[in-house]
Design a protein around this nucleic acid. Structure first.
Lengths: 228, 228
DNA sequence: GACATTTTTAACATAACTGTAACATTGACA
DNA sequence: TGTCAATGTTACAGTTATGTTAAAAATGTC
């Protein structure tokens, strides 16, 4: 689960943060001072850090510097919290590598919006690449699929199933695994539904014999493989 | 040539600025008071403005407000010059849309460094170039779009969407990505709004069949691509 | 402040996709 | 070979995503 780590000493604010962050479906962790934070951060390895610029022990810049120089944490986005009137800190903040800032007092909605925006920006599942197996090519950048150099027209679900299977060609996935990865967990869908989508996928990839690469492993599932 | 416009009344400082700015290869222009500056800025249309916060006639905020509300100047970066001890001005400065500040006295090296940093940042957006894809050409200098050699009339938003899509032809962007990049992060706009703009964009680019290059990827987003 | 332009929302229409059920087929095993 | 369970196939109806239009809201302009 996506984890937000807050470094903030003001109790009332911590409660507010915790409530809103949890309500938005994130995991919440926190420290009330800089040294504690530096210890915990290493283990926690959160997805985003909320950093109060005014801490009881050390300056926010120091925490920032620590994060940026740490191998595991260096790419973790940081949002700094500053009080009204501390705008001159913004420059040093950005220079130290903060990604965004928000001025106290702030609305929870705004904070959540900024958190989500930053997470979006730093998430890397939008990488472009070309997966290929046999005569099938799948371009995640343009969402196009080619089968023996002809474009295959797939529905969104079929596309995602194929993308999933192509990440590990040859490997057998159970219907449940396919469901979890393509539909998402806790979704109520019959197993038979998968068969239907597999059918559609096969149909779309049937230009030539070499394109028929979805193998049924009876009582186990499906895989991308030569049918042999 | 890149032009730096200074608004500063202290003669000694003007000489210092002029010398260093010219030595760094920029063109130097200046005014010694706010009203004069507002008149000259319009014609000069500089690449960056150095604004002393304490002017003999009007407050720096007023000049700032003027620049930001002027069609041609609104994107010009502003560095404000403040005297030590005027830190409280920074708040209003940033609120008015200043991009950076520097406290007097400052080292010429630091000033030049900040100028260059700001120019770099703003040049990414304002570099003039002609993007082209298929029969569509987009001139970022004149903000004109040609579709099969005829000019297409686009609204500002449509223009920016097209410009964004043209930076990576073929690549699929989700509505959220389009929002982040065209509207900016943490903006509350419905997804449907994008569809409407896409509709207008398509309408404007429909001279011929070859001009219809916005592809819908159901449940994923849009891309600039042949529809095949 | 009135006007024109642009942007956003809302409502509805249309097209595309999805899941289910019902039935057909296949393969394993006694 | 008959039986059973698993999978293949098909068609359809419900659902969802997108297209389209118009009007309200916001913004810029004179």
């Amino acid at each position: 689960m996506t984890t937000i780590f807050s470094i903030e000493d003001e109790e009332a604010l911590v409660s507010l943060l915790e409530y809103n962050i949890k309500a938005s479906g994130f995991k919440f962790e926190h420290s009330t001072n800089g040294y504690d934070a530096m210890m915990k951060l290493q283990k926690s390895n959160p997805d985003l850090i909320l950093l109060d610029w005014m801490l009881p022990d050390i300056a926010g810049t120091e925490v920032c510097k620590f994060v940026r120089s740490n191998k595991d944490l260096k790419n973790t986005p940081i949002i700094m919290l500053t009080a009204k009137g501390e705008e001159q800190d913004l420059l040093s903040g950005f220079e130290m590598g903060c990604d965004d800032y928000i001025t106290k007092p702030f609305s929870p909605a705004e904070l959540i919006a900024r958190i989500k925006a930053l997470l979006r920006r730093s998430s890397d599942d939008s990488r472009e690449m070309i997966l290929s197996y046999g005569n099938i090519k799948l371009d995640t950048g343009s969402h196009r699929v080619y089968c023996c150099d002809e474009e295959a027209k797939l529905g969104p679900r079929e596309y995602r199933i194929l993308e999933f299977l192509m990440k590990n060609p040859g490997r057998v996935y159970s219907r449940q695994q396919i469901l979890d990865n393509v539909w998402g967990t806790n979704v109520y869908v019959t197993d038979r539904t998968i068969d239907v989508h597999i059918r559609r996928l096969r149909k779309a990839l049937s230009n030539t014999e070499e394109c028929k690469v979805i193998r049924t492993i009876r009582s186990s599932g499906y895989s991308l493989d030569t049918n042999s």
